[in-house]
């Protein structure tokens, strides 16, 4: 089907969401809680766009691009005054929540906000509660972290540390997917620490690069149905090996 995004005609498949289509066509829409690895969520409200349709008799609507399914003939505007206003509102609030985040500062500046008009949070961390870490952890099949509480007290954590951290495999997916870098971890020669738990490190048999924690590799082997021995080398060493084998076979 055909739709128009910012006066450009683009092609989309049924079932796709506006944000994916825009991104594929190089049209930028800011989004904080979106990641292709997890289901769209519509939590950050930053990807708001204005839509209309020739059949809608002039009606326009503001929707989250990440959750709005494409429709034939839809006319999408990603940079109207209204869109600018709602995004600025969201960023003003986010800046009050996380005044120290350079990502939020930069985004806010793009929308003309240097300083939040609200009272900044006392003792702020970098978490914007986008839920990406929780969703990726669930997707991976560990479900070790969750949101605790509600409202202003809501936070992301391993509830009841001793019990729930047992589910953590130390894969760092949560820390890597976090848009603001709010999840702290550290890695030394032999030890990785995340969510106050220490993990051993497994290194590549060949190049000695870190490939993960024993728990993580065990988990991935179980989930993928591959043999545990598959996870003894790092990706690049495995690729090099496979390439060498192909060379022998094909030439």
């Amino acid at each position: 089907m055909q739709l128009t995004i910012d006066k450009r005609s683009v092609v989309a498949r049924k079932g796709e969401y506006l944000l994916e289509v825009a991104q594929r066509n190089g049209i930028e829409i800011p989004a904080l809680c979106h990641h292709p690895a997890v289901e769209p969520w519509g939590g950050c409200r930053l990807c708001m766009v204005e839509i209309t349709h020739p059949d809608w008799k002039g009606w326009t609507g503001l929707v989250t691009a990440c959750l709005y399914p494409v429709q034939d003939g839809l006319i999408v505007s990603t940079d109207t005054k209204k869109v600018h206003q709602v995004r600025a509102g969201v960023l003003d609030l986010l800046l009050a929540r996380c005044p120290g985040s350079s990502l939020i500062q930069n985004l806010a500046r793009q929308y003309g906000i240097e300083e939040t008009s609200f009272t900044p949070r006392k003792a702020p961390d970098l978490c914007i509660l986008c839920g990406l870490c929780i969703r990726i952890c669930e997707k991976i099949g560990a479900s070790a972290i969750s949101s605790i509480g509600r409202g202003v007290e809501k936070l992301v954590s391993v509830p009841y540390e001793t019990v729930a951290t047992a589910a953590c495999v130390g894969c760092l997916s949560c820390a890597n997917i976090c848009p603001t870098g709010a999840i702290a971890f550290s890695e030394s020669e032999h030890c990785r620490t995340i969510w106050s738990r220490n993990f051993e490190l497994v290194r590549c048999e060949e190049c000695k690069a870190v490939i993960g924690t024993p728990e993580q590799l065990e988990h991935f082997a179980r989930r993928s149905g591959l043999d545990r021995s598959y996870f003894t080398k790092c990706d690049s060493c495995r690729n090099r090996e496979a390439a060498a084998r192909f060379v022998r076979v094909t030439f």
Partner: peptide
């Protein structure tokens, strides 16, 4: 159900 999810609901 994952423990983390049960605790999320219990605290919500």
């Amino acid at each position: 159900v994952p423990k983390a999810k049960v605790i999320a609901v219990a605290t919500f």
